[in-house]
Design a binder for these strands. Structure first.
Lengths: 267, 267
DNA sequence: TAACCAGGTTTCATTATTTGAAACTTGGTT
DNA sequence: AACCAAGTTTCAAATAATGAAACCTGGTTA
């Protein structure tokens, strides 16, 4: 009965779009209907509209829907305009060259980590495969360092939304464990992923903050337990900090909020 | 009065989204209003809804809208599911290594070229910067080879939509010039960009076709007139053809339409 | 200080669109 | 030939979108 989506028709249509994307593979009308809150003709019309609008692609051969090319076009602008990526790019390149390990740039989106850019030391390139990918905040290096520097009520809101799904034996599995970890991170100024998300995978992560202390994003250097250990990764902290500082500075000169106050903007 | 967008409210909202993206920079309400066909409160509400839905990001400091992070998330799925990129990736890597020049993968979207992936020989990575970018079909190598292998009525539809803006002294500036060029390309099986889009920039391009001859996309190797010439680029035709064939084959094994007939799918 | 103004936001009766139960098609199967 | 699952269309009722006008609000000018 009550409102389900908010934001009227547009919100509902976008919910359908998310639903299609969530399948992660081309999906049939019936499959969507089975788990849709919308009645048949309503869902049908949304799919038609979204397909018309190229937000979905329809394969008539297989009668399946997938996210459409218009999203790729739009995301190009979004990535270039609403993320740290363009500002961070040269610094990420330099960091990658210096450390010779996989490097990530991430931002917080809702209560999740959104990967924005990546440098893969060994087989270079790859990437869109990673950019746009989302991951859990409570068990990744970048996620935890971003949470650590949110203000107190924001962090609680985000903590409530974590699933605390246990991926490995090291995964933090409760809000309290996470709070303790965040407190440590605030002390140190950086954090680790101690095989919390994937066995054998470890990383050091550094937040990117504005001069006012607001969280912009995070950087990390990732490796494996077979190649190094946490102490080894900790050696990257200075260069990570420098890189983060440079990104902060460039973001300031570019156009990020929280920077140019009314006074400096004025005239 | 008459319908403007089709697709009702959702179509209108997406039109606003496009309008914001088209600015290519954070944009204020007033600027949008000035060139919007919607009255003030209507535009206002669309912006609110889209912002709510994270399709737009609002910067309260500067009172500006930009495309939002939700697009980046959604595009990740779209790129991975509705483009040739995941199938082509290893072949593009190999091609890039072999030729040591910049390599592009593109698809046709509306009447435009949509760049899907890229390998930059010298400074590797970059990319999302390119992936999602659109370009003209009538004056790029990838654009022309894709047009050349469309069926006759499809190609005419697309030709009608070309702007024939003159970028350089070599730009094809009429439908007839383009038709002649496409005919040549059909003969050869591949095409060139002879500094038609940017002075000094040349490329060889190869279409990627299904076994039934339908256009899936195109590959190109790009260089500069200071480093090589068309004859030099033509040497890459064999490896381009091989690469395109491999992509065709893999696309077949993966899941592209026009391939698995009811018989092979059915059991 | 007061009047003014541009840019942005809200109201609310009118209008147009969305909604979904039910009926209908279609292609494939018993 | 009857049946069935999956997808598509209809149409009156319910709902949401619309936009002219009024209203804020912070900054600027007289």
């Amino acid at each position: 009965m009550g409102r389900v989506t908010g934001d009227g028709t547009v919100g509902k249509a976008l919910e359908v779009l998310d639903q299609v994307a969530a399948f992660g593979r081309p999906v049939r009308f019936g499959e969507l209907l089975a788990q849709s809150e919308f009645p048949k003709p309503t869902l049908y019309r949304f799919l038609q509209t979204l397909t018309n609008q190229q937000m979905l692609a329809y394969d008539p051969e297989r009668q399946t829907y997938s996210p459409g090319l218009r999203l790729v076009r739009l995301a190009h602008t979004a990535w270039d305009q609403s993320t740290l990526a363009p500002v961070a790019r040269p610094h990420l390149d330099a960091l990658s060259k210096a450390v010779g390990e996989t490097v990530h740039l991430a931002q917080l989106d809702h209560a999740q980590v959104l990967y924005i850019d990546k440098r893969n030391a060994n087989n270079p390139v790859q990437m869109y495969s990673q950019a746009g990918k989302v991951g859990p905040a409570y068990c990744t290096g970048v996620g935890k360092v971003m949470l650590a520097f949110l203000d107190e009520d924001a962090v609680e809101t985000v903590i409530e939304q974590q699933s605390f799904h246990v991926f490995t034996e090291h995964t933090l599995d409760s809000a309290d464990a996470l709070r303790a970890e965040l407190s440590d991170i605030r002390q140190n100024g950086y954090g680790f992923d101690r095989e919390e998300h994937e066995p054998g995978i470890i990383c050091v992560a550094m937040p990117i903050l504005t001069s006012a202390g607001r969280v912009l994003g995070a950087l990390s250097v990732t490796s494996t337990t077979s190649r190094t250990n946490l102490a080894g990764l900790e050696a990257y902290v200075p260069i990570l900090r420098e890189t983060a500082d440079k990104i902060t500075r460039d973001a300031q000169n570019w156009s990020f909020p929280d920077y140019q106050t009314k006074e400096t903007t004025g005239i």
